[in-house]
Design a binder for these strands. Structure first.
Lengths: 349, 349
DNA sequence: TCGTTTTGGTGTTTCGTTGCACTAATGACG
DNA sequence: CGTCATTAGTGCAACGAAACACCAAAACGA
C-alpha cells in the first residue's frame, strides 16, 4: 500500500505538505512544490486511506441511505438520485436495504455510525424514532423522507423533505370522485408508516367532503396474508384487489399504496376478468418509470424524486458539517403532482 | 465517543483484554472477566470504531457491489440477495451505481479500495478489465457476474458465477423457432457487454442450426438514439421495437436484451397497433418480478439470482480472507432456465 | 543594520484498535 | 522443593493521515 509518506519521499517534501496539497491548502506553498506533489501522487497512483483519514478527523464524507425495499423500483430511483447528489458534493453513499424492519434499520444505523458515517437518510417513514434515539444522542444526524414536521421536531431528526401525503391522498380521491366513483377501495400492505397513514387520511378527507366514506370492507391491509414480509408489493396488490373485487358490493375504483401495488392490482383485476379502467379504475403513488410503460398507463401521484434527493442531501451535508439550519429551512415540503393517465375512467353507468 | 479504553477502565482490565473479548478470543480469560467486560460494553453502549479497526488490520468486513443500473429492478433484486448473503457472513455491503460507465466503475472501485474494501462484486460484464488492472494489482479482489472463464483467468479476476449466456440465447431462439417464427428480431442497447454478446451469439447459433439467420435489419442496437445514457432500458425497448416493426418485412418475434427492454417493447408494439403475442412474440432475459405481473406475462430466461448471489459472496469472502481456491471451484456456471409465459405464441398463418 | 512579517514548509503527537511480546500467578509433577 | 507448562492478562508499538505548533529563510521597512 502506498501511503502519504511514499508520496512525500518521491516529491521530496514532508508528509504534512502532501496532506496540505490533498486537502486544498495548496495555496500555502510554492506552485512548483504543489506540482511536484501532484505528479508524485499521479505516478504512484496514490489514494488517501479513508480509514486513517476518518479515524483522525472523526468525520468522513460518506452518507448512508436506508431504503425500505430494494425490490421496489421507486427506491431504486431514489437511490440513484441521492447517490448522484451525494457525488456532486464529493460524498459517497452507502446504501442499506432494511426491508421495512425496525430492528434491521436500527442495526444498520448503528453500523453506519460505528464506521464514521454521521449522516443518514431514512427512506422509510416510521411512526417514531425510538429505535434510533440512542444513535441520535451519539451524534447521528438523521434526514427523513416523508415526516410530519411535528414528529420530526420531537424526534431530534436533523432535516426532512416531504411531500404532503395527506394532499396526495386528497388529490387522488378527488380525481376519482370527479369521475363519478362512489365506492372507492384502498389496498395497502400491513406495515404502518406515516406516509401511508397520511395518504389514507387524505383519501378519507376528500371522501368526507363529497359526503362519502371509506367503509372497512373496502379497506384491505393484508391482514390475513401470511408471510407478507417476503412478498413483493405487486403480489400484495394482486391479492388485495382480488379480495376487494370479490366483496358483495365491490368498489369501482381502487387506490393502491404505491405503484408496485397498483401494477399487481392490474394483474389481480385481470385474474377476475375485470378490465382496467372500464370495469375498475386503479391509481397508485410514486410514478415509477414503469407507470407509463404498462397498459393501460397508470394514473398516479408523482413525487419529485430528483428535487427531493438534491435538497435532502444538501441539507444533511450542511448538518453533518456542523451548520445549524433554521427550522423553516430544514423541514421542506414539496408539492405532489397528480399524473392522469389511462388507468382511471368515468364510472360506467 | 466511548472507546475501548473507557470500557477497559469500567471493567477494570486492560484494553487488550477488551479487544480479545470483542474478537472472539474470550476463551483466553476467566469467564467472570469476560462477563465484566461484556457488562461494561453493554452499559456504555460501546461500538467498536471500525475506522480504527480497519486502519490497523488493513482489512474490513465490507464488500462492494457495483451494479450497472439501479433503475433496473433486476439489479435491485441482485442487490437485495447479495446484501443478505453478505449479512449472513457478517459482512456489510456497499452498493454503488456505475451507470454502465467504465470510468465511473473504475472510480468507484478505487474509492472502495481506498476505504479498505478489498472485495468487490461486479455486476456489469465489461469486455475486459483494463480499467481495473491497477486496482487488482493493488490488492482488490474482483468477483464477476457473467464472465467467460477464459476472460476471467486472463484478467486476474478472483472468482465468478455466470449463467451460460450463449445457452440462454439458444434456448430463447429455439423456443421461437419451435413456434414457427422465421424472422426473429433482436433489440439491445448500444453498450457492449460479454453477456449481451454471448446471448446474441447463442441466438445466431440456434438460428443457424435451423438454417435461419439474423440479418442486420432485424438487429437494433440503439445506434442512432441520442442521449441513450440517460434513458431507461424500457424506453430503449420501446423505440427499438418500433423501428424493427416499421421495416419493410418486420419480424414476427423480437428478443429483447433484458426484461425491462421487453416491457418497453410491449409499449412500442402497442404504439403501432401490434398485439402481443398475436401479432408479435416478445421475450426477455432476467425474469424480474414484474415479468409475471404484466399482461401478457413475459416469456423470459430466469437467472437463479438467489443462488448466484450466495455462491459469489461465499467465494469472494474466501478470497478476501486469503483462501486460495482451485480454479474449477472459483469459476462456477449455473444453468439458465426458460420460463414460457404468455408473450410468445405460434406464428400466425 | 536590525527587527518584524510573510512565505514555505517541517516534526510530533494523536485518533481507537490490534497483535505481538511479554510477565505474573497458578498448577502439575518428579 | 525446584522446574516447567499453562493460564490470564498487560504494555507498547504500530496502522496512515491530519493538525497544531513550530521554525528557517526570505522579504520588507525604517
Amino acid at each position: 500500500m502506498t501511503g502519504i509518506h511514499d508520496v512525500a519521499k518521491v516529491a521530496g517534501v514532508s508528509a504534512s505538505t502532501v496532506s496540505n496539497v490533498i486537502n486544498g491548502r495548496g495555496n500555502k506553498m510554492r506552485p512548483e512544490t504543489r506540482q511536484r506533489v501532484l505528479d508524485a501522487i499521479e505516478s504512484l497512483k496514490y489514494t488517501p486511506n479513508s480509514a486513517a483519514r476518518q479515524l483522525k478527523s472523526g468525520q468522513n464524507t460518506t452518507l448512508g441511505l436506508i431504503i425500505p425495499s430494494a425490490a421496489n423500483p421507486f427506491w431504486g430511483a431514489v437511490a440513484h438520485h441521492v447517490e448522484r447528489a451525494a457525488r456532486n458534493h464529493q460524498y459517497r453513499l452507502l446504501i442499506c436495504n432494511a426491508e421495512r424492519d425496525r430492528d434491521v434499520e436500527a442495526r444498520y444505523a448503528e453500523t453506519l455510525l460505528g464506521s464514521g458515517v454521521t449522516g443518514v437518510i431514512l427512506g422509510s417513514s416510521p411512526l417514531n424514532f425510538d429505535h434510533l434515539r440512542d444513535l441520535i444522542r451519539r451524534g447521528l444526524k438523521i434526514a427523513a423522507f416523508d415526516q410530519r414536521v411535528a414528529e420530526v421536531e420531537q424526534n431530534g431528526v436533523a432535516c426532512s423533505v416531504s411531500v404532503d401525503q395527506h394532499l396526495s391522498g386528497m388529490l387522488v380521491a378527488q380525481h376519482l370522485i370527479g369521475l363519478g366513483h362512489k365506492r372507492i377501495g384502498v389496498v395497502t400492505g400491513p406495515i404502518k408508516t406515516n406516509s401511508r397513514i397520511d395518504r389514507v387520511s387524505g383519501v378519507r378527507a376528500a371522501l368526507a367532503r363529497a359526503r362519502l366514506e371509506l367503509p372497512e370492507d373496502l379497506r384491505w391491509q393484508g391482514g390475513g396474508v401470511i408471510g407478507f414480509g417476503d412478498m413483493e408489493g405487486s403480489e400484495l396488490g394482486r391479492i388485495g384487489i382480488r379480495e376487494l373485487l370479490s366483496r358483495d358490493n365491490p368498489p369501482t375504483a381502487v387506490i393502491c399504496g404505491n405503484d408496485m401495488y397498483a401494477l399487481g392490482a392490474y394483474a389481480g383485476a385481470r385474474d377476475l376478468g375485470y378490465r382496467v379502467p372500464d370495469d375498475v379504475s386503479i391509481v397508485g403513488f410514486d410514478d415509477i418509470a414503469m407507470a407509463e410503460i404498462v397498459y393501460p398507463p397508470l394514473t398516479t401521484i408523482r413525487q419529485p424524486v430528483l428535487a427531493m434527493a438534491e435538497q435532502i442531501v444538501g441539507l444533511l451535508i450542511r448538518r453533518v458539517e456542523g451548520d445549524e439550519i433554521p427550522v423553516d429551512e430544514a423541514f421542506i415540503h414539496v408539492p405532489p403532482q397528480l399524473i392522469v393517465r389511462g388507468s382511471t375512467a368515468p364510472i360506467r353507468t
